[in-house]
Amino acid sequence: MTPRLSVLDLVPVRSDQSSADAVAASVSLARVADDLGYHRYWVAEHHNMPAVAATNPPVMIALLAARTSRIRVGSGGVMLPNHAPLVVAEQFALLEAAFPGRIDLGIGRAPGSDPVTSFALRHGAGGVDDQAVARFPEYVENVRAMLEPGGVGLTVQGRTHPLRATPEAGSTPPVWLLGSSDYSAQLAAQLGLPYVFAHHFSGQGTEQALALYRDGFRASDAASVPTTFLTANVVVAETEEEAERLALPQLQQMVSLRTGGPLSPQRLVEDAETVGISAEHEGLVRAMRERWYVGTPDRVAAELGGLAERFGVDEVMVNPVASAVRGTDLASAPAREETLRLLAKAS
């Protein structure tokens, strides 16, 4: 089968880039995805990480939606325990008003950062870590209710006050639940929400999570049937050798992340080749690489089709993780753009 294609973007920062360069490169990437017919373009939320500039999804969504014309733009996702539900509802109600029918609100429960940064975020959102995570289902429902045109009624001292995310909503963005565990799958099924399992990050437990979601799904106004797609780390190039070269910097970053090593901006390809992979981490790299889709256009397109067929989905969201060679224009990500172009042509 040939699945519909979408894009996930963490707004990576290379060792030769500033944050401004990384944002400009993502704007260019989104425009390429828009022109090629990709269905949606989601940006993640991560904080205090040297290689990731996607700290504020609503701001990035506004930038990207303003520079594209057709593609759906959304969050993959907003880490709701970091924020007051009303703030999230207001942000996405305003985005939907500005770009009606093109906004997705993907919501997650993970911290998206280190414990210290998470505490700083969540303390500012009105609670401490344990409270914010424990109240996640309540927060999700609050956001959904406040996005509705009628809003919600907030009772204070015996009086009910109307609370709306925006004064006159003409439409509301669809809400998706995101997760990498059984918890979010079960909650999405219970609430009748569309759901996405973080297959690109975990690579394990996908089948069980989707089965829990589909088996326990309760139809709702948000979705009449289980609605889901898969995410995948992807690098496509004209040759297998070039694709593997371009994937190496991100593989090295994931090794550091998984082993507690020092995090740094994404290396350029030449620098990554100089560093290489240590013998003690070769097994970890092989295990991760087996779950990535790296290679020539026809082969990767066929493998993504097989992934979609295996898990019974009609959409795959690709995270183009290719780095760049020395001398690349700082405000661009040519290898990431080429991944999208070659994959679209082969699909």
Rank of each mutant, 00 (worst) to 15 (best):
residue 239 T to M: 03
residue 4 R to D: 11
residue 228 T to Y: 13
residue 276 G to L: 06
residue 195 Y to H: 08
residue 16 D to V: 07
residue 43 V to A: 02
residue 163 L to S: 07
residue 4 R to M: 11
residue 194 P to G: 14
residue 131 Q to F: 05
residue 36 L to V: 08
residue 311 F to H: 15
residue 9 D to Y: 11
residue 113 S to Y: 09
residue 281 H to S: 06
residue 236 V to I: 08
residue 74 G to L: 01
residue 203 G to C: 12
residue 303 E to P: 01
residue 204 Q to M: 07
residue 103 I to T: 04
residue 20 A to S: 04
residue 250 Q to Y: 08
residue 160 T to M: 05
residue 96 E to M: 15
residue 234 V to Q: 02
residue 157 Q to K: 14
residue 337 E to A: 09
residue 89 A to H: 07
residue 44 A to I: 12
residue 342 L to F: 06
residue 345 K to Y: 04
residue 317 M to S: 14
residue 18 S to C: 12
residue 313 V to G: 05
residue 294 V to C: 07
residue 84 A to G: 01
residue 285 V to A: 15
residue 3 P to A: 14
residue 55 T to H: 11
residue 113 S to Q: 03
residue 246 L to S: 06
residue 2 T to Y: 05
residue 49 M to S: 14
residue 49 M to P: 04
residue 207 E to C: 10
residue 43 V to P: 03
residue 61 I to Q: 10
residue 289 R to W: 04
residue 297 P to M: 10
residue 85 P to R: 00
residue 227 T to A: 07
residue 308 A to H: 08
residue 343 L to Q: 09
residue 321 V to A: 10
residue 324 A to R: 03
residue 257 L to T: 06
residue 1 M to I: 12
residue 51 A to G: 05
residue 159 R to M: 11
residue 268 L to V: 04
residue 178 L to I: 01
residue 317 M to Q: 10
residue 273 E to G: 10
residue 270 E to T: 13
residue 221 D to V: 12
residue 60 M to G: 12
residue 114 D to R: 14
residue 42 W to F: 11
residue 341 R to L: 02
residue 239 T to K: 00
residue 202 S to Q: 13
residue 219 A to H: 15
residue 58 P to A: 07
residue 59 V to S: 13
residue 211 A to M: 09
residue 107 I to R: 06
residue 305 G to K: 01
residue 293 Y to G: 00
residue 85 P to F: 00
residue 17 Q to R: 03
residue 319 N to M: 15
residue 210 L to M: 02
residue 191 L to Y: 05
residue 31 R to T: 07
residue 63 L to P: 02
residue 214 R to G: 14
residue 295 G to V: 01
residue 149 P to V: 02
residue 172 T to A: 13
residue 263 L to T: 02
residue 15 S to T: 08
residue 182 D to N: 15
residue 112 G to N: 10
residue 163 L to M: 06
residue 253 Q to H: 08
residue 268 L to I: 09
residue 317 M to E: 13
residue 89 A to C: 03
residue 226 P to E: 12
residue 2 T to W: 01
residue 225 V to F: 08
residue 151 G to Q: 00
residue 175 V to T: 15
residue 184 S to I: 02
residue 300 V to A: 01
residue 86 L to S: 10
residue 221 D to L: 15
residue 56 N to T: 11
residue 99 F to K: 04
residue 162 P to A: 15
residue 209 A to S: 00
residue 316 V to D: 11
residue 270 E to P: 13
residue 6 S to G: 10
residue 127 G to Y: 08
residue 118 S to V: 09
residue 166 T to L: 11
residue 292 W to E: 06
